[in-house]
Design a protein around this nucleic acid. Structure first.
Lengths: 173, 173
DNA sequence: TGGAAATGATTGACACCTGAAGTAACTGGC
DNA sequence: GCCAGTTACTTCAGGTGTCAATCATTTCCA
């Protein structure tokens, strides 16, 4: 039920404020659904490729990627934060990788509660092999989009990320 | 470690082609990681809200949302496709919702292999209650971003989606 | 110094999700 | 009509994810 449609011809050019707000709300939901659908699609493809080519999974790959960028190792809690999953989950994935010898838990002498997780030499070797291919998949998926559009997307998503952190911490009080 | 920054003022404006390509590749990976991180953040918040306020989950909500838009019901395979998950998964989620009386499986007299899944009256009532709140959460999460930026994001993600479908079907041959 | 509160990690119950294998029902060509 | 092939759904095993409860260690402060 559109309200007051074109009620006053004279001010036709600037739309009724309520309508504008409702349109913006609708836009937010649309944006969210589109983000989700894009991300899911890409994620599914990458996951399938990882499974088919290296018999591994996205979370395992993600954990190793975090470690590769941190040669001195990471605490379980740091992994949890960077991977944006709960601590209990990190325990499980680390267990699996450790069992396969790709990763080690080292006790921190300064604080015996924490584990410092590091890639083994084998883990590093294996990760590098996967990372190269992974990058090619991503590049291929995005190849039809212009650099300009990619740059814009990165920038806009950066904005979004900033705004969400704010809203999210608001919610925490 | 910035390379060759401003080494040759004279040809500063057109960068070496190889460098430009490498930058674009780097950009693709960066874009992918940023999309993933934004989506994960939002998804986590929505999931927590659904759990806290309605003791339900995102996939259950998603399934009901698909049904609400299709009053005549949907086949399991249609649900699977729209939710972008495998068929086996839809079976499980439908089982749960059916057990709670929010959804029914009706046999299609024309083809006894298919189930037509529909919301029950109770399911519809419950979904509408959730949908209203859900919309408010999403709106709140995006409220700090301008309509202009949202519009641009929707458009760019639309482009991306189109491009990926093409790449993805290429892969299928 | 002693003990309450905070912190880092693990565990267990339960839900999700995939891929592969299985069952039942439909279809088309002979 | 028959039956090979396809299609719709289910089942199962195994990995991923949450939350709440637990345990060990550290920190802080009275």
């Amino acid at each position: 039920m559109p309200r007051d449609k074109g009620r006053l011809k004279l001010i036709d050019s600037h739309v009724d404020a309520e309508t504008r707000i409702r349109d913006d709300h609708h836009l937010s939901v649309r944006l969210w659904l589109r983000m989700l659908s894009c991300t899911n699609r890409i994620e599914n493809i990458v996951r399938q490729n990882l499974q088919a080519n290296f018999a591994t999974t996205l979370p395992r790959f993600d954990l190793m990627a975090q470690l590769e960028r941190a040669p001195q190792g990471l605490k379980m809690s740091e992994l949890s934060q960077r991977m944006m999953v709960t601590g209990g989950n990190v325990t499980g994935i680390t267990d699996g990788l450790e069992k396969e010898g790709l990763v080690v838990r080292e006790v921190d002498p300064a604080d015996r509660r924490v584990y410092r997780v590091r890639l083994t030499a084998e883990g590093e070797r294996q990760f590098r092999r996967m990372a190269g291919e992974h990058e090619q998949w991503v590049i291929a998926l995005f190849e039809r989009m212009s650099s300009r559009d990619k740059g814009q997307l990165v920038a806009l998503l950066g904005e979004l990320k900033r705004h969400i952190s704010v809203s999210s911490s608001d919610r925490a009080e």
